[in-house]
Design a protein around this nucleic acid. Structure first.
Lengths: 188, 188
DNA sequence: TAGGTTCATTGATTTATGTTAATCAAATGG
DNA sequence: CCATTTGATTAACATAAATCAATGAACCTA
């Protein structure tokens, strides 16, 4: 759990008292590979810190499905749209590896907002951070080639490429598995 | 200014007292067409409600520039990344038509957060909303063809297409003006 | 471990878009 | 109001990726 506090303290100073309230709500859970953490239509009830694992976000398409995001160790995972609005999710979240999460429920988070100084700052920071990431993604999709996106991902998340099927990467960078195969051939 | 209150009251109940504090900070300003509201490198100091006008967000590229977003009447405009973090903006914001804004400074917003019940809710809601829009955009860029994005935009913002150069639309949907021209020919 | 499934790669063909260049129309500014 | 600039369209050619199809390798799982 120290891992989580350290992660937060990169951005905020947290008092021991606030940390006590916050950490008391966290519940540790383990999931095996290919577990569906969130299904389309369900309302997300958790915001979770990832101690270990890789997650993928996807929507169903006619044939294959479309992987539009990943989450990794030391980050957060949640069907955030659904969580915030408490409406049914439009997408799935699946574990790609064995995963360990520290989970917070929607209700507990509201309690943390009420009871701590730092809660709101963290919540706001999380939203802002997600917005920023999506902004970067937007520019990446508009501004760069599929090949460049693959190389960038290789740079940022090399372990991802070692651990999960390439077809998910292909989908994420916006091409078919065949096209990614050719990109890889071209590079090597 | 009633326009703004009505806009907020779609999502929140606002007391007259809170509205008094909020609205006292708003400053009305007019800008002519092609005015640069925010330049790359500047720190954004405003969050503005758009009474009237169309704005475009862009980054510079080698040759032409890349338009990645628009803002319209009854919405908000801000170099939000820069505003939130108070760091230099990586993009430009430009008026495409004569524009009327009601502006709030960064400092005034902090004051509103402190002084009103509703401030934080609105601020959070704004961040969440932006995140949601970027999520949809991500899926649109991954999941749909340029032609479909054009048709969607035609559906959602028909007035946009009547008022601004097509080359910006082309950039926004992720193709060259020549490609958009072919798409339009194909459709008609 | 054997059999079936999933995955990555490759090839051939088609399609959409990029690039370069030219032309015409429309908008703008002195 | 005219000259210049800017924007939209079209064409020809090049390129990247989609699609359809086949194959062999890797991987589950009973």
């Amino acid at each position: 759990m120290e891992q989580i506090r350290k992660h937060f303290e990169k951005n905020f100073v947290i008092t021991d008292q606030d940390w006590q309230i916050f950490s008391s709500k966290l519940v540790r859970r383990e999931f095996k590979k290919k577990h569906l953490l969130l299904k389309k239509g369900q309302i997300e009830n958790h915001l979770s810190f990832i101690e270990e694992g890789i997650l993928r976000f996807y929507i169903e398409k006619q044939t294959s499905d479309l992987t539009f995001s990943f989450a990794f160790s030391n980050g957060f995972v949640s069907g955030y749209n659904s969580f915030l609005t408490q409406t049914p999710s439009s997408y799935f979240i699946e574990t790609l590896t064995k995963t360990v999460l520290w989970q917070l429920t929607f209700e507990d988070l509201q309690e943390i907002y009420r009871a701590t100084e730092i809660g709101n700052a963290i919540g706001r920071h999380a939203s802002e951070d997600l917005f920023l990431k999506k902004s970067q993604r937007e520019l990446s999709l508009l501004n760069q080639s599929a090949q460049q996106r693959y190389l960038d991902l290789f740079e940022e998340q090399p372990e991802l490429l070692k651990n999960i099927p390439l077809k998910y990467i292909a989908s994420y960078i916006g091409v078919t598995p065949q096209a990614l195969s050719r990109i890889r051939k071209r590079i090597s």
